[in-house]
């Protein structure tokens, strides 16, 4: 077993080098040997993919190797156990796209494609067709309306879960949060918020990754505010319904928002100093919360009641924002009910 693991380490290094400038030193023999390694590891993959113990040992070693190579190489791509099953095409694609590959080797790779009956044609065909298939399927979901669901986002969310899982393995709680911070800070906003919200919507709430993401969100108030501002109220209400910590943070964000608004006596309405914090938007947030499942609705109602009580329990317009808010929402909700009835 140790021999296989050592070989694996050498092989992953070979894959890494195939993407780097160092490939300029390769000759025909190196390429041939690299492809022989590929067939060997495809065989290993085939043989042990359903063998729990050995597979875990290989996966653990891959994790260590990936981590090491990541620190020493820029743009390093992780090699997973599944990748071993297709390493021939992966190597081929890495080599072909590498501008540092010697011309004679590039021509060798091309000559393998020239005749449709060579085995290399099939292996490269799969990867090209997979890309094309992704594009075709994406166009099906975008060109035909009625698809509410965004597979690309979902895929990215799954990738993020997998990635974070592999990067946080064997770390202390604190280190894990640092690692999450580090990874997520590299993803531009608001993309990162969409992703995190999708993970929180699809992943079980008590998985480690969900907990880490939730912690990442609620620990930084400014970050959480931009999170709330960049997502739709419906999604936020859904997340709040799933997760009590997010619910609390969300309600306190809305409370702060309401408290920052002032009554404009001249025009008879509530105003804030920014467009993003408009009165109508605050209504939207609350009405989605009140349309949510029972526990969420009750929590929201009790928050509003407490806030009204703090303001003195006045029943007149223009004194407490919460009194006015509840009045408007109740009106619109019962209006909705009357419409649908």
């Amino acid at each position: 077993m140790e021999a296989i693991l050592e070989n694996l380490e050498r092989f992953v290094e070979v894959l890494a080098v195939s993407q780097s400038d160092s490939v300029k030193d390769w000759d025909h023999l190196t390429v041939q040997r690299a492809f022989q390694w590929c067939s060997y590891f495809q065989h290993i993959h085939q043989r042990f993919q359903t063998h729990g113990l050995i597979r875990t040992a290989l996966e653990d070693r891959l994790c260590v190797i990936n981590k090491e190579l990541k620190t020493s190489m820029e743009n390093y791509r992780f090699v997973s156990f599944e990748d071993l099953g297709f390493c021939e095409e992966i190597l081929y694609a890495f080599l072909l796209q590498n501008p540092a590959l010697p011309k004679v080797l590039y021509e060798f790779l091309l000559s393998e494609l020239k005749d449709g009956s060579k085995p290399m044609v099939n292996c490269i065909s799969r990867i090209i067709r997979l890309k094309a298939a992704s594009q075709v399927l994406l166009s099906i979901t975008s060109i035909l309306p009625n698809s509410l669901f965004e597979p690309l986002l979902l895929t990215q969310a799954h990738s993020l879960i997998k990635y974070l899982e592999s990067r946080t393995k064997h770390l202390s709680q604190e280190e894990q949060l640092d690692r999450v911070n580090e990874v997520l800070s590299r993803i531009p906003r608001p993309c990162v918020f969409q992703l995190v919200s999708t993970v929180l919507a699809i992943d079980d709430i008590d998985t480690n990754i969900s907990k880490l993401l939730e912690q990442w969100l609620v620990e930084d108030v400014v970050l959480f505010e931009s999170f709330c501002s960049s997502l739709h109220c419906e999604l936020l209400a859904k997340l709040a319904a799933r997760n009590s910590k997010l619910e609390a943070a969300y309600l306190s964000f809305l409370t702060k928002w309401g408290q920052s608004m002032e009554y404009d006596t001249v025009n008879g309405c509530w105003r804030s100093n920014t467009f993003e914090r408009a009165w109508e938007k605050l209504q939207d947030h609350f009405s989605w919360l009140l349309k949510g499942p029972q526990t969420l609705r009750e929590a929201t109602q009790s928050t509003l009641k407490n806030l009204i009580a703090q303001d003195g329990n006045f029943n007149v317009c223009g004194i407490s924002i919460w009194t006015d808010l509840l009045l408007v929402i109740k009106g619109s909700l019962s209006g909705d009910g009357a419409d649908s009835g």
Partner: peptide, 16 residues
């Protein structure tokens, strides 16, 4: 993000 292209496409196709 550090994934091989094949892994990315497979995952994307699976979800779509």
């Amino acid at each position: 993000l550090g994934y091989t292209p094949t892994a990315c496409y497979s995952e994307l196709i699976k979800n779509m």
